[in-house]
Each structure stands twice: as C-alpha cells, then as structure tokens.
Design a protein around this nucleic acid. Structure first.
Lengths: 255, 255
DNA sequence: ATTGTACATCGTACTGCGTACGATGATTTG
DNA sequence: CAAATCATCGTACGCAGTACGATGTACAAT
C-alpha cells in the first residue's frame, strides 16, 4: 500500500475543502450528482470494513455509483481525500465535560477516547499526520484534549508536549494492533500457527548458552500471552507507565 | 508503498534463510553468480539511500547486476527479503557491556542505540514487526537489551513488557521523524512553506472564541519549535517520561 | 566422451494502482 | 436559440510484484 500521509495536497485547496468553503462565482453547467460528504462517508465506510488498501479510487467510485474519474470533480486527488476522512472521524469523537475529575482520570479518558477511535477506524492509525488535516474536526479535538491538562500547572509548551506524548503512545499501540489485525487477514497463517510453525525449527538453531536471557524471558513472555502478541496487555502496561511518567511533572493535589 | 511487514513469507523457508542453512543435496546446474548477502546488502544500501519505496525488485536487480526475475532464485519474494534486511541491521548494532552502570543509564543507552539504528536506516521504522524476523540478529539484540534490566528486580514477564514499551516508544518517535523526512522529500513544499501557506487561510476560518485553548497553545508550541514539527524535542521529552514511568516499578538502589 | 537432468537466468505478460487527457453531453447565461 | 461552462466518464500510461515458460549451463551417470 502507499505510505498514507495527510497534508500531501495543495494546502489552500485542502483547507477550503476541510472547512467546506464553496467556490463562489456563476454555477454554469450541470449540478454535481453527489455531495462531498457522501464521498467522504463512503470512503470511511470502505476503510472501516476492508482497510485503507481497499479504498481505491475505483472501489470508492463504485461504492458511490459513479465512474472512477468522476471522483476527481469532488476531490483533487487521493491525498486530499485522506485529510477529509481523518478530519471527519475526529469531528465525530465524543467530547464530554470532565472538568470535575482529577487530571489522571481526565488523561486516562482522553487516551480511551482515542483508543476507541482507532478501534472503530483501525486504518486511522496507519496514516502519518506530520502535516495534520487542519479542519474543524481536528481543531475541536485539539481544543477538547488540551483541556484535560487544565489545573495541572503545566505551561503551554509543556501542555502541548504532554498531549502529543499521550496521543503518540495511543497511536503506536493502535498501530501494533492494526498490524496484527491485517497480518491475520492477509496471511494464510494465524499468529498461533505462525509461532507453532517457527517453534520447532527455532529450537534447532537457538543455542541456549548463547542466548540464555532471551530464551528464558521469551518463553515466559510467550506463555503469559499465549504465544501470540497481546496488544491489550501492552496497552494497559504502557498507559500506566505514561501516566506515572507525566505525574513527575505535575504536583499532587492539595488535600 | 505496500504496507511493509516482516514474517509474511513461509516461516520454515524464512527461518532457513535467516540462519543461512543451505539446502543439502547434489548441486547440479550452474552456480549462482551472487550471494544472498550481496543481495541483502544491496537492498539495505538502496533503502538507506532512497527509502523503502525505492527497493523494488527491478531496482534491486539493477543494483546487483541481474535481471529482475533472477532475484527470485535467491529469495522467494519481497516479504522474505524484508525479514533478511531487518535481521541484518539488527546484527550490526553495537552491544557494549554496561553492567557497571545504573539501570536508568542502561535503558537510556538502549534507547539511544535504537534511535541510532533508525537514524542510520530510517526505513526500518516503517516496517511492522508483529511477526518478527527470528534470526541471529534479532536474537542477539533481544538478549543484549534484556540485560539492561538486570538487577532491577523485575520478573521475566514484566521485563519483556518494559523492553517492549521502551522499544515501541523509540520506534514511534523514529516513525514520526521518518514521516517528516519523506514528506519533505516527496512534497514540493518544505514544512515551513506548508505551514506558511496554511497560516493566513487558517486565520480566516479559525474562531478564537470557539477554540481559545487550541489557538493559544498551538501558537506557543508553534513558536517554540519554529512552526515546523521538531522530532528531537518530542523525543527528549518522551524519553524522560518513559524513564520516570518505569522508575515507579523499580525500587531505588540502596545507598 | 556423451547424454540426461537439474537448475540459474531472464523476456514476456498479467493484474491493479493513481490519474492525465480528451470526448460527450447536460445545463445555464446572454 | 446559441454559446459558454462544467460534470461525467472511456481510454490509456507508467509502475508495482511476480507467474510462466524458454534458454542455456554444469554436473552425474553411463
């Protein structure tokens, strides 16, 4: 699959699409038979159901009932479509008021909200957002998530760094889970079968005197997660570490 | 680019290649004109210089001076080639004895070693290793890195989880850096130009009353890193958090 | 020395991707 | 009603991984 990445299109055009600013001017010629939202929604559904690789311009065109090239009258190209998809799912995230809770609960909740996002839309974890889709969805998300650090005493720069740190952790965990998922789909082998196929051959070449710690710890870790990689355990362990790591920056509440 | 992933080939065949176990039996017919190591080395050099996307079977074949289809006599397919490439760069990593140092220094050093790996071979950060290349390189790496937690009192399962946590953090940081790098290469815009192109249009649509925190913090963060994303700062901040997070699991040394 | 077999090499071709280009026809403006 | 504009879409191009089969080489058996 291509390296999926946001912000790859013309910035001005992309921004106009994200904020749904129609070109003004006389509207001659036939009207468009679909809306931009219909296209974006169909693309998201396709990605949810079959993965980002399944979102080809031909497949998407078929899903909305037009010819492939017709899509290019709605969107300059696939790059801009990805920005629109991401901003749309950001916009749909829940944003409850959590101002009454302590910071640790608020940050844990923000992590959970993002984890849920990646559960509902696993493809989103694959997309590189170094140049983020600066649309209304991302803005609302950013505004809401920064609020999780209200009252922690962090300065603005550190607040942004802390949020980035939490989001990067959740994304990395989601990426691992998504990788495992797509490996399961694409490959003829399940994880269990794959490890089982490797084990006997590995035993032949693996010298326990050469790799004593690796063999012992690997066996223990393998047994603890049933031979297959268990993303949930890694997530829970990591989230606890993330919160503890942030706690050293934040003074405990006065009791 | 395809979703790069290790462990996608036949496990038995892949393992045999990783551990360089030649098929026995009578060797009839012409000898091969290249060695597997030559192929793998050329692929790594190509990836280092031009990125993983540049490692096409055609380009690699040209680099080693054979026809594209000839590569398939050395390697069953591109999937197995990736496993070989990764295990080879793992094997080359430095593994100094750090048993005299405190755990925090040892873990910081292991993070640095991995960061250096991804600096030398940025493409490695893009590869999903849910089904890792179980070759001599990975084994040596795993053995050495587990030793960083010697004397911390962590049980084997937690030790593995802690190592995974650190490695995932470094990989995620490297992936962001690699994304930024490839965005710079592929796009006609530099990061600075891209943000500069967005700023004025964004100012028009961005309502400060609607997103007060986002606008304030975003401006502060942007100023602190010169408008462009700065991976080094995020890495330093994150690594300190990672170590603090692990410290809550590990009793301080007796003085 | 000769022959048969196994194997390395490689040319051709298939499918599927994003999308450039240009023809067609529908709709609105003058 | 004519002209301008624009949505729609068929065709085609380059590039990816690699399946298939032809060609020729080097060793084993005779």
């Amino acid at each position: 699959m291509p390296n999926h990445r946001t912000g790859a299109g013309d910035p001005a055009h992309t921004l106009r699409l994200l904020w749904r600013q129609p070109d003004e001017g006389p509207r001659r010629g036939p009207r468009q038979g679909r809306t931009l939202d219909e296209i974006v929604t169909a693309a998201i559904e396709l990605a949810d159901a079959e993965g980002l690789d399944a979102v080809t311009m031909r497949a998407l065109a078929q899903a909305v009932g037009v010819a492939p090239m017709t899509l290019y009258t709605y969107v300059p190209g696939k790059a801009e479509l990805l920005d629109l998809m991401l901003d749309a799912i950001y916009a749909q995230m829940p944003r409850p008021d959590r101002s009454g809770q302590p910071w640790r609960a608020r940050v844990a909740a923000l992590a959970r909200d993002n984890r849920d996002l990646f559960t509902a839309h696993p493809w989103a974890a694959e997309v590189a957002t170094g140049r983020p889709p600066l649309g209304p969805g991302l803005m609302a998300k950013y505004e809401h998530e920064l609020r999780a650090f209200d009252g922690t005493g962090l300065d603005d720069v550190t607040r942004d760094a802390a949020l980035t740190y939490v989001l990067d952790f959740v994304r990395a965990a989601a990426r691992s889970a998504a990788d495992a998922r797509s490996a399961r789909q694409d490959s003829a082998w399940t994880d269990e079968q794959w490890w089982a196929a490797n084990a006997p051959l590995l035993a032949q070449v693996l010298d326990e005197r050469r790799y004593p710690t690796a063999v012992r710890v690997g066996a223990a870790a393998g047994a603890a997660q049933n031979a297959a990689y268990h993303p949930d355990q890694a997530y829970e362990f990591g989230l606890a570490r993330v919160l503890d790591g942030l706690a050293t920056l934040i003074p405990p509440p006065e009791v």
